[in-house]
């Protein structure tokens, strides 16, 4: 899904850099929260920032959103055409918990944001409907549940029809119902071609919506690029036959096959170079083995992520 969107957008617009980060550094005393981080955000893509808790995701977002001071390095919005706070008027962002004035209603809070961003009140009703809060629009913010607060935060981030939507752990602390609702909303926004930057430690979340990913650990960038090109892996086969021992011997003799493991009676053969399922099937059949089970898989994002964060 997300990949299709990416391709469509790429055809429509020439690549336009929305955000560029160069050699960004942040130290909190001795803690090196962000270490020489560089990456670019292009228009129309959906980016995920992946990293374990405390890896520097939120700090990075805090820096580009003008609430955390960088120690060194640079970042520029929209090719440096706008100052940071002017650029932020074209950005929609939610970081950590939703922060609004508890004594104001949803509508009053959104009106305030319209004033700050310098846009008219026209969109308030529409955005409240998108996040299903229209019925509760005149309730005070302090009466909202966490899920409703998070949805109001999304509505506020959408008020200016942003060029880019930045979400930091948008489903954190929500119940399954709430998580589903938020993901649904994010998917709809992505389908409209809005650039999204999503920070999360939840891999399936990123896998479901993102086309590109930046992986960081301890403030160091481990990978940035397309989700499906994250590891150099050529994938692996799951194989099963009546004579597992002979199957294993044959596989070991094949030049394209690397390590072989056995899991629950199924052989897992990792590929060291490109090899199609039909080629391996033909090779085995010619050598007198008929398979009862053959699947070619790419490693899951979770597997890739763990490989990346463990190897380095």
């Amino acid at each position: 899904m997300s990949r299709q969107i990416h391709i469509i957008n790429k055809n429509q617009k020439s690549l336009e850099t929305i955000l560029s980060i160069q050699n960004l550094d942040k130290k909190y005393g001795k803690v090196h929260a962000v270490n020489n981080l560089s990456f670019d955000i292009q228009k129309g893509n959906v980016y995920g920032i992946l990293g374990p808790n405390g890896s520097g995701k939120s700090t990075t977002l805090g820096i580009i959103l003008n609430v955390v001071n960088k120690t060194s390095g640079n970042f520029s919005w929209f090719d440096g055409k706008l100052s940071t706070h002017e650029a932020l008027k074209k950005v929609g962002a939610i970081i950590e918990r939703p922060n609004f004035y508890p004594y104001m209603t949803a509508v009053q809070n959104l009106q305030l944001i319209c004033k700050i961003k310098g846009v008219s009140y026209d969109k308030i009703e529409e955005k409240l409907k998108i996040v299903n809060l229209y019925e509760r629009r005149n309730s005070k913010f302090r009466t909202y549940s966490l899920g409703m607060k998070q949805r109001l935060a999304i509505a506020s981030a959408l008020l200016n029809d942003p060029e880019i939507l930045i979400l930091d752990e948008p489903t954190n602390g929500l119940d399954p119902q709430g998580i589903h609702e938020i993901r649904q909303i994010i998917k709809e926004i992505a389908q409209n071609g809005t650039t999204i930057l999503l920070a999360s430690h939840l891999l399936d979340e990123v896998e479901k919506v993102c086309s590109h990913v930046v992986v960081i650990r301890n403030g160091v960038k481990l990978y940035s690029g397309r989700v499906d090109e994250m590891t150099a892996s050529n994938g692996f086969f799951e194989l099963q036959a009546d004579d597992q021992n002979k199957l294993k011997q044959l596989l070991e003799s094949h030049s394209s096959i690397g390590t072989i493991n056995s899991e629950n009676g199924v052989l897992i053969a990792n590929l060291s170079s490109e090899l199609s399922a039909s080629e391996i099937n033909k090779f085995l059949f010619d050598n007198g083995i008929s398979l009862s089970h053959l699947v070619k898989r790419k490693p899951s994002l979770e597997q890739q992520f763990l490989d990346l964060t463990n190897n380095q």
């Binding site: 003008n66 609430v67 706070h85 932020l88 950005v91 506020s156």
Partner: peptide, 17 residues
Amino acid sequence: SYKTLKQNLIDGLSKKE
């Protein structure tokens, strides 16, 4: 205490403003 200062800045108000 409401952490709205942070939100104001994210929404595009500069610290000077």
